[in-house]
């Protein structure tokens, strides 16, 4: 038991470091790129142009209808077969961004639709174009509405990045796998990894709560 405790302590910082240098940057980069994709897809879906909105709908349907692990493997192990070889990190970021793009698009679309029609009209009556009204009036309000669900998406993403260990990205889970392979203490190391994911998520959701409390003040009546 003493050696178990010691292994726990000795592997704690390496695993946490795997999280800080792998998991979190991977999740952050994918989330930011994913949000850009999501906004574009949400606007495409809301567009009056049927082709655009069909493309948006198709994208969301494919992303949400296929497993993330399969998406990841298609990019990392599949694309080389057609001559496109991408390194582990960019592959992981690509897969997670595209995935977040599909899920967050629906959140952003719903948030935009939740802004009362009168807000568009108030923008129009002061002379704004559609695009300016969207940017100045609608999106800031939609952003506030979408903070809670997008925070949840981000927390899920942090956990989902453990899949990147399967394409050789050094992140939290891969560090614990490597130590476990060496020491053969699978139970201890995987529970430890679980604990550290949990601590990360606790920190993130308390950040989420603080953010929501601050934004609450401005949400439309």
């Amino acid at each position: 038991m003493a050696s178990g405790w010691q292994l726990f302590l000795e592997s704690f910082w390496p695993i946490v470091w795997g999280g800080l240098s792998g998991t979190i940057p991977l999740a952050l980069a994918s989330f930011v790129i994913g949000l850009v994709i999501a906004l574009a897809v949400a606007l495409a879906r809301l567009s009056k142009n049927r082709v655009l909105s069909a493309i948006g709908r198709f994208y969301v349907s494919v992303i949400r209808g296929t497993p993330l692990l399969v998406q990841l493997f298609v990019i990392f192990y599949g694309l080389p077969a057609v001559g496109v070889v991408i390194d582990p990190w960019p592959s992981a970021i690509a897969a997670f961004s595209l995935n977040v793009g599909g899920y967050a698009a629906e959140i952003i679309r719903a948030a935009i639709l939740s802004v009362p029609k009168g807000q568009w009209e108030a923008g129009y009556t002061i002379g704004m174009s559609n695009a300016t009204t969207l940017r100045r009036i609608i999106l800031p309000q939609a952003a506030r509405v979408s903070v809670p669900p997008l925070s949840n998406t981000f927390i899920s993403l942090v956990k989902d990045t453990s899949l990147a260990s399967l394409i050789l990205v050094t992140e939290l889970f891969r560090v614990s796998q490597e130590i476990a392979a060496f020491t053969q203490d699978f139970m201890l190391l995987y529970l430890e990894a679980a604990l550290i994911y949990w601590l990360f998520c606790l920190a993130l959701s308390s950040g989420q709560n603080a953010l929501e409390r601050r934004l609450d003040r401005y949400v439309a009546q």
């Binding site: 009168g118 108030a122 002061i126 300016t132």
Partner: peptide
């Protein structure tokens, strides 16, 4: 819209902007 401006039944003020920002938004941005 250049010639007229509407005051709505449900004021439709921009909730994320202060009173001043609400008022200068049109003159400044448009």
């Amino acid at each position: 819209r250049d010639r007229s401006a509407m005051v709505f039944q449900q004021h439709n003020l921009f909730p994320h902007m202060t009173v001043l920002q609400n008022v200068i938004e049109g003159p400044q941005r448009v």
